[in-house]
Design a protein around this nucleic acid. Structure first.
Lengths: 244, 244
DNA sequence: CGGCTATTTATTGTATACAGTCATTGTCTC
DNA sequence: GAGACAATGACTGTATACAATAAATAGCCG
């Protein structure tokens, strides 16, 4: 090769085979990892998410982390304050009310459409999800159960055939998980364990109105199970820790 | 100045006084500029948005542009294909149906709440917006009128007091503007010019149910005014331009 | 002359370096 | 001893440089 006149020039810093083709999926995986960690309360509301730390953990640079953080911010799972960085969103009581009101309007309104499109295969899939949720609850993994419950509601909304509304429901459910994590009672999950099974029954029978009414009560029950007391702010945990 | 030993070295790239403190507002302004350009059809569906070009136009680096593009992508105003870059979203007929179904559900469901919270000041503000919209329409600026109509619907939703649902309506209205730009008839704006005034009347009278029914008809009328024929794809505009 | 392949070019994806700002801590003064 | 101010450190905001890839074009072979 006659162009080998600059042997000192460092070669391509290709780390491994994964140049950047799989970067898309990797980013998606990291996004989901962080999202799940937030929803399952392994990252508690108020927790700071430093870019360097995340970049270090996941082995990519800050650029990719920022992208993910911005997406999470737009979904309101993390709060992005101008020069302070990112932190897990701590939902306020007002926001909680808005979210559950929105779920009332959208999810209930979707039930007739879902009932119309419900078939055997869909019902079976939903029953599987409901069973998995019960199982998680029985084995004491409440945080996991909260996420699985959200997954159930999202899948339901997707069955309506309206992708736009399903996406809205997805975001509302993520935020609901956060709200449950903050305002829910430790021992008591909002969703009664067989509520979802009953709902599937109504839907499978094609009874949209019945399902709508049931969903309304279901959501009201979850909201009613919350204790709307503001918990400690970000810092003064010390008071509580040392007993004053 | 004893440190003038390296006159060739380019100084700190501080362009002007605006180091980075006003960067927030600048980004927001650029975001709105692009968003408005899309909604007002100055950037037509399918148009490619190259990062370099945008960075050059707005005088910031690609980093900031990417951030804005990602935000627009999450709002589904631009489509981001993996290695092809960003382009203005070309809504499909299915998406259009989803969007208008979603508006039916959400905006109609919001009317009772809006009627309950409607006061004189709010009604006056809305009337001003409606008048401005009529004015734009009369002066032939149809694209501007579409955007103003969207603003009206968004403001209405904000008056419901539910910030979450108002944000959803905002996104739906942006997408609706895009849909109108693609599928609407050139001479005929979906919204009848005094529809909005009539609606304000019902709301001011506290008649939420009447307003709800009217909004439903209003949205149906807009949707019905669309001609759901797929236009030319992204490239073959040439066919149309040169008359085949 | 048409279709296929190789090269080139244009554009995005990613990392890194640098500068600015906020918070915290340490010190000095009242 | 307490409060204010200054210095230091940590973290984010932004730009730029480099590598990879897909599109476009030119060349070649059939």
């Amino acid at each position: 090769m006659s162009d080998a006149q600059a042997p000192e020039k460092r070669r391509a810093p290709v780390k491994e085979g994964k140049g950047s083709k799989e970067g898309e999926e990797r980013h998606e995986a990291i996004y989901r990892a962080v999202s799940d960690a937030i929803v399952e309360q392994r990252l508690k509301p108020g927790a700071r998410l430093r870019e360097d730390a995340l970049a270090d953990v996941f082995g990519i640079s800050r650029t990719g982390i920022r992208k993910i953080l911005q997406r999470l911010a737009l979904e309101q799972l993390v709060t992005l304050t101008p020069r302070r960085g990112a932190s897990v969103t701590r939902p306020t009581a007002d926001e909680a009310k808005d979210v559950f009101d929105a779920r009332q309007l959208i999810e209930c309104g979707l039930m007739p459409d879902v009932a119309r499109r419900m078939g055997e295969k869909e019902a079976a899939e939903l029953r599987d999800m409901a069973r998995e949720e019960r199982q998680a609850l029985r084995s004491g993994q409440q945080s996991v159960a909260i996420r699985l419950s959200a997954d159930f509601h999202v899948r339901l909304a997707q069955l309506s055939g309206n992708a736009t509304l399903a996406e809205f429901v997805e975001r509302l459910c993520s935020r609901s998980s956060l709200i449950l994590a903050v305002y829910g009672h430790p021992g008591h999950l909002g969703c009664e364990s067989h509520d979802h099974d009953d709902l599937i029954g109504y839907l499978e029978a094609g009874n949209g109105e019945r399902a709508k009414a049931f969903m309304s009560r279901h959501l009201k029950a979850i909201e009613a199970s919350l204790s709307m007391v503001e918990e400690a702010e970000s810092a003064p945990d010390l008071q509580q820790i040392f007993g004053g």
